[in-house]
Structure formats: structure tokens, C-alpha cells
Design a protein around this nucleic acid. Structure first.
Lengths: 257, 257
DNA sequence: CGATTGATCTCGAGA
DNA sequence: TCTCGAGGTCAATCG
């Protein structure tokens, strides 16, 4: 860790900690006044300002401004990273240069001052375990079909068809078959096409005047999607699954006053 | 900046630098062994491991593992952040707790050891200037319609229809109306549907035997998309905007050997 | 390897 | 405030 180092010192430091095979677990953090230039699938320029830059040994580079959840500039993993010093306008600069070929893109992060640079060996073999995926929502609806429609009864889950797997299959209160397609995020037109394919497939297999309902179930339903559904004689339900517990919301709010 | 501080010291440090109105420009960086719990739109758990955590004064919290371009856990801007110490299993923990109401989600980052904590005042009023967005490509084509087709004349940009906004609208050399949909990245089936909707909408409004052409313009055109376009009597043009300079690609490659 | 799909997407424009 | 579409989307999965 160095405080207010010269460009040459940062350069030496970065090379020392991020080069070689032993650096697999290492991460570099640089805080200072820099500008950023990106050329690749698009092109961008960011003028001088204080930022936090993270370089990971897998090649990821992240440039964070003081605001915003996303990096203002970045390179993805498997990018080649090199450290340099540059002489510009009489002052010396520390440069993080990153480059990759597919697609061809490069990024320059040029520091005119560095407040702090530090390297850290991160020992970490854990991966994120996440709950609330589409399958979990299917579980929830199987457990309580009433959230979709009164009198609905689910008979199959992940029912296989030649078009793929139907999320849920059942019958409504009038004994009419219902095909339900579930999306945990905002549905796309392809979700409508998918549902339509299931319905058509079911009608083909049960040749005759069998009526089949198709319902798209998602947390939101854009107008374009509603139009597509209506055109295809399909239905929709807006359903969102919340995981937040209400119990400590109150006490939490009090704490934040 | 503190090296190997106790949980109480980190807590005091974080509070001191991140509280109050003067901290608007401040960013906190914490490196250490932590675990993360998230509950909200989904739910997740991440076991103990070394990570880099960034807290911005706009409320953003980012948890980065040693690999990957995206944070493993995060909270977006406008999240409320509080620092605490917790006693767990005989050891003391430093905790970054963040919470927001819409949508309700919370995240706990619990540190059992902290290698380094630092706070930085980032002076930065610059915003990213980006070139090559979809609108820039639309500009480019407006300036030189010939890249799409000889004799094409553009009459409208962002022309509003009931189905949404058409990127470009014009007439070809035979005075036949042309609707152009532009994608800066690989087109999806929904782009075809969108274009089809515009064409149908135009035909509905101008009832009669008015012929309208629809052209999808993108940097690549997968076979499936070509099939869909053909089925819908639509056309396509492959058009890509290059930004990469070839000049230093060679020298760059040599440097990385 | 490219093609497709989901995401705690993020972010910004427009109603 | 909410909706909706674009993104240097990213990242995982599938053929």
C-alpha cells in the first residue's frame, strides 16, 4: 500500500503485485485523478476527475466515479492489462492500459495524481447461492394456484411438449385446460411466441374443438406484450413474488431516522 | 486510512467519513473477509471470503470478489447505509447494512477481519461522453442515406406511431415509403416483430393498396432473423460502424507478447 | 464457437 | 412517479 506515490512508484508497485502466476488472487485498487479513453464497440471519453479503479487478476478493470451503481468505464474479464508511465505536457502520468481482440477494444486510464494504491490477496472460494429463480416462483404458484385464478387446479409441472417444457399445466373451474408460462422478469415478445407455440402444440395433439387457455404470468406486462397476447387470443396475469419480510421493516425505518 | 483495524475502529472510521452533508464526495473502500446476505426481489447468501467493498455517498454499495466484471452483490444508488458492530460467536464483526423501500430490499455485509479501510474525497464533475450509440448511428445514416440504399431519401426521424417510434422513415428511388429499424447490436426476433408492427400500422393508417417496405439494419444478421424477415416480407441491410483504429493494433499485440 | 435468454440487470428518456 | 426501451449491456446456458 502506498500513499501519494509518484507515477513511477505506482507503476513499479502495480507490476510487482499484479504480474506473474502468483498474483491469481490479487486485486489492485487505485484511487486518484484520472481520465479515461475507450475505443471499441463504441468510443468514449471521460475528462479528469477523482475515481476509484479496481484491477482484478482475471483482467477485469473497473472505473468508478463517486456516484452511480455501475462503473463509468470498464473492461470485462480476460482483458490484457499493462501498466506504464507516460510523459505528457511536462508532467508524468501513470497509465493502466487494457486491451482485447474479440471484440477489439482498448481502454486507457491515465492518472495525473494517485492518492492511494493498494494490492490485496483475496482468499475466496465461495460462490453466490441465490433463491428466487423462475423455478422457485413456479413452486410458489403450485403451492397456491389461487394467486393466478380462483378455482385453478395444477396437474403438471414442467410438462414436456415438442416445443419445449410448459412451466405449469392445469384445468380451470370449468374444466378447461390451462397452459401457464411464467417469467420472473419483464416478459419479451419471445415469451408470447413460446406460449403460443405450446397452445398450438396442445391443440394439434388433441385434434378437435378442444379449447385451451394460455396465460402469461409475469411481474409486469408492457403494452406491446398485451397487444401481442390479445392478437393471439392469450391471457395474462401480473404476479410478483416478494421475499422481503415485513417484520423488521418497521424497526429498520426507525433506525434510519 | 487504516490497516488491520478492529471492528470498532472501522465502524468509527466509516461513520466519521461517510456521515453528514460534507461527505457528498466521499467514497469508502473496505477490503477484508466478509459474508453477504441479500433479501429483496430475490434472496441470496455468500459465505466467508476476501472481497473489496465500495460504498459511495449516494448510497451505492458494491461487493467485488477477486474474479468477475460484475459485483457479486450490490445495492443501487439511493440506498440507506448504516455501519455497525455485531457480536457473533464470541467474535466481533463490522457490518455494512443497507436498506431501501422501493422495492424493499436489504443487504448485510459482515466482516470478521478487515485488511484495510480507506475513505477518499473524489472531486469529479465530468460525465462520460459516448459516441456510437444507436442515436449516433441514426445520425450517420441520416447524413448519408446511401449507405443503406442508392436513391434513398429520409423524411422523418423518430417518427411516432401507435406502436412506438420508427427510427427512420423515408422514400426510395421509386417513391415507395420505407420504414427503417436500426439495431446497434445483434438483432433479436423482437426487432423483427417491432418492424412488422410499424409496417402493419402504416398500412392500416393508409388504407388501400399502399406498398410499404420495412428494412432492418444491424451490424450482423443471423440466419434465423433472415428467415423471420423473409417470412414477413421484410428486408435487411448489414451495416456496422467501426471505431477501432488499426494503426496501433499491431504494435499493441507485440507489446503483449 | 456462436446464438439465445435471464438479470437483485442499470440507466435514462418520456408520459 | 412510473413505464419502457437501450446498453460498450453482462453472464450463463444451450446447440
Amino acid at each position: 500500500m502506498l500513499l501519494s506515490p509518484t507515477p513511477a512508484e505506482v507503476n513499479e508497485f502495480a507490476d510487482a503485485y499484479m504480474r506473474g502466476m502468483r498474483s491469481k488472487d490479487n486485486v489492485l485498487v487505485v484511487v486518484g485523478c484520472c481520465c479515461v479513453e475507450y475505443v471499441g464497440r463504441a468510443r468514449s471519453m471521460l475528462g479528469w476527475g477523482g475515481r476509484v479503479v479496481i484491477v482484478k487478476s482475471d483482467g477485469s478493470v473497473l472505473v468508478h466515479q463517486k456516484v452511480g451503481g455501475a462503473p463509468v468505464n470498464w473492461q470485462p474479464p480476460d482483458t490484457l492489462v499493462r501498466y506504464r508511465t507516460e510523459a505528457g505536457n511536462g508532467i508524468s502520468l501513470f497509465v493502466i492500459y487494457s486491451y482485447r481482440l474479440k471484440p477489439p477494444e482498448k481502454m486507457y486510464v491515465r492518472f495525473k495524481t494517485v492518492d492511494m494504491v493498494s494490492a490485496h490477496r483475496l482468499r475466496d472460494d465461495r460462490t453466490l447461492r441465490i433463491m428466487g429463480a423462475e423455478s422457485d416462483i413456479v413452486d410458489r404458484i403450485m403451492g397456491d394456484p389461487g394467486v393466478i385464478e380462483e378455482g385453478l387446479r395444477i396437474t403438471d409441472r414442467e410438462k414436456q411438449t415438442r416445443s419445449g417444457a410448459i412451466d405449469l399445466f392445469g384445468v380451470d373451474r370449468d374444466h378447461i385446460p390451462v397452459i401457464i408460462e411464467i417469467k420472473r422478469s419483464q416478459p419479451t415478445p419471445s415469451a408470447v411466441l413460446q406460449l403460443k407455440a405450446y397452445v398450438l402444440d396442445h391443440q394439434h395433439r388433441h385434434t378437435g374443438a378442444v379449447r385451451v387457455r394460455g396465460i402469461l404470468c409475469a411481474p409486469s406486462m408492457p403494452v406491446m406484450i398485451r397487444t401481442l397476447l390479445t392478437e393471439n387470443k392469450l391471457e395474462w396475469r401480473v404476479f410478483k413474488c416478494e421475499f422481503e419480510q415485513v417484520d423488521d421493516a418497521q424497526s429498520t425505518l426507525e433506525e434510519f431516522t
